[in-house]
């Protein structure tokens, strides 16, 4: 079974919906006054403690869906609920790991991790102690004094992960967080993520275009069609046992069977996406 059973965490119950999209759609206004329908009305529910990967071709609006869950902007129609409460404004229960560089370049690694506690009003000494502990957990205990530009891409992602998790959000939103990294670093980061996640099993919405990464990490893989008017075209449960090791799980025959099955669906959409973006 992919999910841990009977886990109780805080006020929330296992199985309750952490994120619910109810007919949420997204349309962007264009400069010429028209409107671009990015995502058609979409319904999706992510349970508490569930790790869901959303996969789709480039430009299908999956990141936009994530931004709506984060409350960075509202859906054009429909609604989003967080633990059965309609979301208005920022999603205070969520932590967000961005694809692009999001660390504060003028703060050291330690300060970057501590900032989430800092703004909550945690005394600085205590915030720094806890940040140091988190740096150690992500394997960068000795790098607290470095500034982001002195760290590698993979190290910056680790700092980003610690920065988000130190606040202990109930929901983790991830937008192709390991996209810019090389293959080996991605695997290491994936294992680190699973390791950290397994300790308290937050609800995770993980957006990626990499199907292998999606299957290896998640409990559920949701496939989106190419935009415009993107929608969900498939929803698979990943039955692979946990704990998983990313490089080992990829050798599992069940992994291959699932990958082949999902790829059949995704392939046509990827080709469509390529055609629409002019082959690029």
């Amino acid at each position: 079974m992919a999910q841990g059973e009977g886990m109780t965490k805080g006020r929330t119950r296992m199985g309750a919906a952490a994120i619910t999209f109810s007919n949420a759609s997204i349309a962007f206004r264009l400069a010429d006054g028209g409107s671009y329908p990015a995502v058609d009305p979409t319904s999706l529910s992510i349970a508490d403690g569930e790790f869901v990967a959303v996969v789709g071709p480039t430009g299908c609006g999956k990141s936009t869906l994530l931004n709506i869950a984060a409350g960075l902007f509202p859906p054009s129609s429909g609604a989003v609920s967080i633990y059965e409460t309609p979301l208005a404004g920022l999603n205070r229960l969520a932590g967000y790991l961005f694809q692009a560089e999001a660390l504060f370049p003028w703060k050291t690694a330690l300060e970057n991790v501590a900032i989430g506690l800092d703004v909550m009003g945690v005394p600085q000494a205590q915030a720094h102690d806890r940040a140091q502990a988190w740096l150690t957990r992500v394997g960068l205990g000795a790098f607290g004094g470095r500034y982001p530009h002195m760290l590698s891409g993979g190290q910056r992602k680790r700092i980003g992960l610690a920065q988000v998790l130190i606040r202990d959000p109930k929901i983790l939103l991830m937008d192709e967080p390991f996209g810019p990294l090389d293959a080996q670093t991605r695997q290491i980061m994936g294992n680190l993520l699973l390791d950290l996640w397994s300790t308290d099993r937050k609800a995770v919405m993980f957006v990626t275009h990499d199907l292998e990464e999606a299957i290896a990490l998640s409990d559920r893989v949701v496939i989106m069609s190419a935009g415009p008017s993107a929608r969900i075209i498939g929803d698979w449960r990943v039955g692979l046992a946990r704990p998983r090791d990313i490089s080992e799980v990829k050798l599992d025959p069940a992994f291959h069977a699932l990958h082949r099955e999902i790829w059949q669906t995704l392939k046509t959409e990827v080709l469509k996406g390529y055609e629409q973006s002019g082959g690029g």
């Binding site: 999001a102 370049p105 989430g116 920065q163």
Partner: peptide, 15 residues
């Protein structure tokens, strides 16, 4: 200011 850094700051709970 990078929009990503700004969005990150907001998500980290900054007033």
């Amino acid at each position: 200011v990078s929009p990503t850094v700004l969005a990150n700051a907001r998500m980290l709970g900054m007033s």
